[in-house]
Design a protein around this nucleic acid. Sequence first.
DNA 1: ATTATATCCTGATCGC
DNA 2: TGCGATCAGGATATAA
Length: 270
Amino acid sequence: MPELPEVETVARQLAPLLVGREVRELVVLDPRLRAAPVPRLSGRGIEQVSRSGKRVLVRFSGARASQAPLWLAVHLRMTGRLIWLAAEGRIDRAHLRARMRLDRGALAFYDTRRFGTFEWFRSADEARPSGIDPLSDELTAARLRALFGTSRQSIKPWLLRQDRLVGLGNIYASEILHEACIAPSREVRTLGDDEAVRLRRAMRSILKRAIRACGTTFSDFQDSHGEIGSYQRFLAVYDREGDACRRCGDLVVREVQQQRSTYWCRGCQR
DNA sequence: ATTATATCCTGATCGC
DNA sequence: TGCGATCAGGATATAA
């Protein structure tokens, strides 16, 4: 379940491996994958690999000086994995959905459940998501407060909407609310200035720490080398139903909000 | 307009 | 041991 820290991990690992390489071909091997038609890529070079929300963004140069650059956005959704293949020869073909061969090495896209997507863009602007990145300087507490507006949604499902903030998913939404001492059922419009400050601070600290830990591997996530993340050992509430809260000792509970599990502590979140 | 629900898809797990 | 039911949660289309 790749969220912002997991996608950031993949992008950071892939950048030094891919930047400067020249593309031989990109083949979508599975017709059921939700991938837009692949444009002509041969002769193009990879100029940049970055994260845009929960997408890995790859910038290709034009094949000639006169040709415009091109951006590929890969969304890993639930089970997508971008795995670097240093050498050809016996590669795991199970759930292999696409492969990009380069002048040296190759990149494989695995996706058990085929929820992942490939999209192509003509400019970085076109690829930009509508929501604000929680780690960007744009996201001040005041801006967050403005985003809350008059919404009657509960804060937990609100945090998952990608049209407001981009990058949070089910695991970090619970973790961030616990860090900020805010109950997941709180109506967004009732959150005050101090709570916006705490929420913003919690987003930044948790996401940054999770990036340092190369993400959370709950079940499926792997980085570009097939390794798992290590943030799961820091999880304060997610998947800890019945355990003691690390902050106040009360029991962590699980509740379902909009068909998704929310984990929280009644003792210290209000 | 806003919020809730069904859907996509596969594999792991659970109860019988 | 096997088998059907349930759950996991990314985002979007559709319903309310």
